[in-house]
Design a protein around this nucleic acid. Structure first.
Length: 316
DNA sequence: CGCGCAACCTGTCTGC
DNA sequence: TGCAGACAGGTTGCGC
């Protein structure tokens, strides 16, 4: 699923092609996408504007516009943002489409619900499209319709992110001290802490498992049970797993594709995630799967021992 | 406020 | 072969 490394991979790919481009037309095909705002309001706010920059905060992607507003997009679990080049080619996974087929060629007026399944990949789940002034097109697709987009001004954006996102884990602010402060006194499991975006922004189910393994920490250990060495280990584990994911262009378990429609390679190098029953890469013990906070969680019982309650200083 | 959990969605996999 | 049910997980909202 798209977590920080996947969203950042997309951001890096979009930036050179989107900055300086004008959004000639914006079309919301699924009203769910722009909820709670209407499709028309979203289109009106974005259309005609030039893209000055492409940013990211946690798992959110932002197209910063020339009027000070930003188009904010969250892919949630199955969303994808694919850029079609001006020459119409792009999409490497679609040899059926002839190079000069009109973009308006799809006639939906007659098509029943079970229309030609061969035309599906990308078309059926297309939720919004941004036509660029160089002939290119940015397409947001999402089979499960969880992904969302909205347009907001700077103050609105600060308030929005401020109330739901914590520290950027690849920034200098993500220190050992910050980790200690965030987890102090917490009784919930470390896995849940990592998934909560108000602490560390951008970590999801995959990188949480990988980070805890790198840190040698049990996913069920309470946040407040960590001591100094653990704070450092977890901070480093988060950073290392995210950077590894970035180096490999993200993880493609099933739906994730980058802005060129291609898969990442991180899924081939998972240390524990989705590796139930296999041997631990460090000690060889069998990796197990448990459920924490309703999420599948994978870890090595040999390397990731549960922390005892924080040792109380003995009286006298 | 912290914590746990259901709900939001739909495609895919599993078991009978 | 077909179909019901489980499962996937980022975020929100509700109850305790």
């Amino acid at each position: 699923m798209p977590e920080l490394p996947e969203v950042e991979t997309i951001r890096r790919q979009l930036e050179p092609d989107l900055v300086g481009r004008k959004l000639e037309a914006v079309e919301v095909l699924d009203a769910y996408f722009s909820k709670p705002s209407t499709a028309a309001a979203f289109e009106r706010a974005a259309a005609g504007r030039e893209v000055l920059d492409v940013g990211r905060r946690g798992k959110y992607l932002m197209l910063e516009l020339d009027d000070g507003n930003s188009v904010v997009i969250h892919l949630r679990m199955t969303g994808s943002l694919v850029l079609r080049e001006p020459d119409g080619s792009a999409n490497p996974g679609d040899p059926r489409v002839s190079p000069n087929s009109s973009p308006q060629a799809v006639d939906t007026s007659q098509a029943g619900p079970s229309a030609d399944p061969a035309v599906d990949s990308g078309e059926r789940h297309l939720r919004a499209r941004f036509l660029l002034d160089d002939g290119g097109e940015l397409r947001f697709s999402d089979p499960r319709r969880f992904g969302r987009g909205f347009v907001a001004g700077p103050d609105e954006l600060d308030a929005y992110f401020g109330s739901r996102l914590g520290i950027e884990p690849l920034s200098p602010e993500f220190t050992v001290e910050a980790m200690a402060a965030m987890t102090a006194g917490r009784t919930g499991p470390l896995k849940s802490f990592l998934l909560n975006q108000k602490g560390v922004a951008g970590v999801g189910n995959i990188y949480a498992d990988e980070a805890l393994f790198r840190a040698g920490l049990h996913p069920l250990s309470p946040g407040g049970s960590m001591r100094d060495e653990h704070h450092r280990a977890l901070r480093d584990g988060v950073v290392e797993s995210l950077e590894r994911g970035l180096d490999l262009g993200g993880a493609s378990i099933d739906d994730y594709r980058d802005a060129r429609g291609e898969s990442g390679a991180m899924q081939n190098e998972f240390l524990v995630h989705r590796r139930e029953g296999e041997g631990c890469p460090r000690c060889g013990e069998t990796i197990v799967r448990i459920v924490v906070g309703g999420r599948s969680t994978y870890f090595c019982p040999g390397c990731q021992k549960r922390l005892r309650k924080r040792p109380r200083r003995r009286a006298r």
